[in-house]
């Protein structure tokens, strides 16, 4: 309802708005990185971003520059049509790098730590994380991880019992690795971060988390006896 009311008011002021937009476009507000191909509104947004984070040191400010997939998914509000889906999936699949020795499940205990640890990656003058301390993947912020996990988030699906049925077959390991390394390669415009692509987690950390998710004796896959607590959703192979 409020959007309609904004649109109505906007109509009356359209000429003034257009002049403003035109002036901004002419004043050279277009970005150096991807000046072309951006709409007038997007160019305004980029100018505001550059100005609003003007004090950030260069290495930090680079985080604000969108890559192709971030821009495309933002534009379609994470609902790409078939053609865009295909293009993103192909591109992101090619951006996955695999370890030399192949995909071998890592250490599930270390994996559990990374899955639950939310430390790392924060920058700025006010409260930066220590870059020397290992980063966690913070999976638990968005996922319930275990059948007895009472503090996991609900932005992503529950992973309780995730490995049951999947097992530790190569196809399962590959799926989990790809999913964590670059979720857009599996589900274009996924809301999940591309942990490997951005170098947020190392390849070994991803294999450790994969072990935690898939190994049958992991707390993820230890379903309580009937009558205690309902198990989370068991996810089928894609």
């Amino acid at each position: 309802m409020s959007r309609v009311c904004v649109a109505e008011r906007c109509m009356g002021l359209l000429p003034a708005l257009l002049v403003g937009v035109l002036l901004l476009a002419l004043s050279g507000a277009s970005g150096p990185a991807r000046g072309q191909g951006l709409s007038a509104l997007e160019r305004q947004m980029e100018a505001v971003v550059r100005d609003s984070w003007g004090d950030a040191p260069g290495v930090e400010a680079r985080r604000l520059v969108q890559d192709d997939t971030q821009l495309e998914c933002s534009r379609v509000r994470n609902e790409p049509g078939d053609a865009l889906r295909e293009r993103i999936q192909k591109r992101e699949l090619a951006r996955i790098s695999y370890p030399e020795g192949g995909l071998v499940l890592g250490d599930p205990v270390a994996g559990e730590r990374y899955a639950k640890d939310g430390y790392g990656g924060r920058v700025g003058r006010l409260r930066p994380d220590d870059p020397a301390r290992p980063r966690g993947g913070n999976c638990q912020a968005c996922h319930v991880l275990e059948p007895r996990d009472g503090i996991g988030g609900t932005l992503g699906p529950s992973l309780a019992g995730f490995g049951i049925g999947l097992g530790t077959r190569p196809v399962a390991v590959r799926y989990v690795y790809d999913r964590i390394y670059n979720s857009h390669a599996v589900n274009p415009c996924s809301e999940m971060p591309r942990f490997g692509y951005h170098g947020f987690l190392t390849r070994q950390q991803i294999l450790d988390i994969a072990a935690y998710l898939l190994m049958p004796d992991s707390p993820v896959n230890r379903i309580e006896p009937p009558g205690s607590e309902p198990a989370g959703t068991v996810r089928p192979l894609p």
Partner: peptide, 24 residues
């Protein structure tokens, strides 16, 4: 007009994904 412009920018920024976690 500047208020309307800033409203649209704000709406756009709300959905603008960026950073090492691809978040908006």
């Amino acid at each position: 007009p500047r208020e309307l412009e800033m409203y649209r920018i704000g709406e756009g920024l709300f959905h603008r994904r960026s950073g090492p976690l691809d978040l908006s």
